[in-house]
Design a protein around this nucleic acid. Structure first.
Length: 413
RNA sequence: GGAGGGGUACCAAAGCGGUCAAAUGGGGCGGGCUGUAAACCCGUUGACUUCGGUCUUCGAAGGUUCGAAUCCUUCUCCCUCCA
């Protein structure tokens, strides 16, 4: 059976829900379509949590469809309440514009621009939402009203109790996102919106709006929320988000993130987040390839896709050096120390803080007590120890480690 | 608007005048086992420290007291019920 957008979409476990699956499948097999995914612009980069959406855009391209990337310049000014417990802080227009630029840059790494018919179209919903003059109103006035309070008003309560519809304020965001879809449907003939499962409600609203307003058919498609085997949400580690921007997270750390996934997640992630052929992944699984080899494969593939082949190779080599040979890999973060200072000797606690391996001296003392700080693989026994010139090798390097996984190179300059 | 309940460390949740830097659980961090996995076990978990201590924390501000997370006053936010 020939592969199609949907067959691969399903096999890679991207499918969660669809508004009208059969019809959409027929349509999408017959002709090339345009579909869009919206990205929130609250932060200056995307993180792994958005990766599945990006993979969807790539898949559209693979099968000759044209992805539209909607950057939420307008909607970010309001803030999507879906699944959020607290109101987000409101960003300035300037911050949002900066974020948009950076996010666009990241997305362009993943998407191919050569072919004109599948080249991604970037749009910013501020372009049309701004014209509604509605944004300013919401920012100035709307933020002062809480839904909670509004719901406690008798008039409102009554309507809710009697199952009358409750419009406008509460559903501002939904309305705006629905309106986005309508605009893209009109402007760009976009007939499909894809999003995470948390966007289902918003997406359905768009589909319905298009039906009512334009009397035309559009479709919604969602991807599942990815949970790790550990039950945590994908993309957030304790140390912070797994960013897709090399300035926020180095290629080496990105590689490490994938290298360290749970055994149970490896095959799933290979399917979801790499371009490897599905039957090849199946083969690997059938042949019982060593799980650690699979993790390395996963890390290499994902890192290559984002940071390029040589970055992936470097990361792999660095990992090999640090974990297998216990030596130094070039990709480890480097902390420079002036020669004069090194001659005097630097207290080990200060050095750990300086290397950003920790932010609290008390914590460093504790870890030393627990035998978790190492200098050149030797456990630091005493918190008063100093790093001396003699600790550096002929390349003027020394390795400082915090636990088994965090290492930095200390270098004399 | 009326009545009650509540805000404690990263989260949940005890404490209700001194022995409280604050039980317990989760999470985090470190160690052990292993495979840079999971599970399990151990240690640790406010900051600074010359390791003697010192400083800052229990919604906010005042007050009572030798002494407050604990009692009083005001403020503030949240929850439940009634109008």
């Amino acid at each position: 059976m020939a592969e199609s957008f949907f067959s691969e979409f399903n096999k890679r476990n991207y499918f969660n829900q669809c508004t009208n699956f059969e019809e959409l499948e027929k349509l999408i097999n017959k002709k090339k379509i345009r579909a869009y995914i919206g990205f929130d612009c609250t932060s200056k980069s995307l993180h792994v949590g958005s990766l599945l959406q990006i993979m969807c855009l790539r898949l559209l391209q693979k099968y000759g469809h044209q992805p539209i990337v909607l950057l939420g310049g307008g909607t970010t000014r309001i803030g999507d309440p879906s699944g959020k417990e607290e109101t987000r802080k409101i960003l300035s227009g300037r911050e949002i514009d900066d974020n948009i630029k950076n996010i666009e840059k990241i997305l362009k790494i993943f998407l191919k621009e050569k072919n004109n018919s599948t080249k991604p179209i970037f749009v910013n919903n501020y372009d049309w939402l701004e014209k509604l003059k509605y944004i300013d109103f919401l920012r100035k006035i709307g933020k002062h009203f809480t839904i909670n309070k509004m719901l406690s008003f008798d008039s409102v309560k009554l309507r809710l109790d009697r199952e009358h519809s409750l419009s406008y304020m509460e559903f501002n965001y939904m309305i705006l996102q629905a309106y986005d879809f309508l605009e893209l449907n009109k402007q760009k003939k976009c007939i499909l919106q894809i999003g995470g499962s948390d966007q289902w409600g918003n997406i359905v609203n768009g589909v319905e709006l298009i039906k009512r307003h334009n009397n035309s058919q559009a479709y919604g498609l969602t991807t599942p929320l990815i949970t790790l085997a550990s039950g945590n949400k994908m993309g957030k580690t304790e140390r912070g988000a797994v960013w897709l921007d090399k300035n926020l997270l180095s290629p080496y750390d990105y590689w490490q993130f994938w290298r360290n996934v749970d055994d149970k997640d490896v095959i799933k992630f290979l399917q979801m987040f790499t371009d490897l052929q599905l039957d090849k992944i199946q083969d690997l699984q059938n042949n019982k390839v060593d799980i650690n080899q699979l993790k390395i494969l996963l890390a290499n593939q994902t890192t290559k896709m984002l940071h390029g082949e040589s970055a992936a190779k470097n990361a792999e080599q660095t990992a090999k050096n640090t974990f297998e040979k216990k030596s130094i890999g070039s990709d480890l973060p480097i902390v420079n120390i002036k020669k004069e200072i090194a001659k005097k000797g630097v207290n080990i606690i200060d050095l750990v803080i300086l290397s950003k391996l920790s932010t609290s001296k008390s914590e460093v003392r504790r870890i030393i007590k627990n035998r978790g700080i190492r200098l050149n693989n030797e456990i630091v026994e005493n918190e008063k120890e100093k790093i001396l010139i003699s600790d550096f090798n002929k390349d003027k390097h020394a390795k400082l480690s915090h636990g088994k996984k965090k290492h930095v190179i200390i270098k004399i300059i």
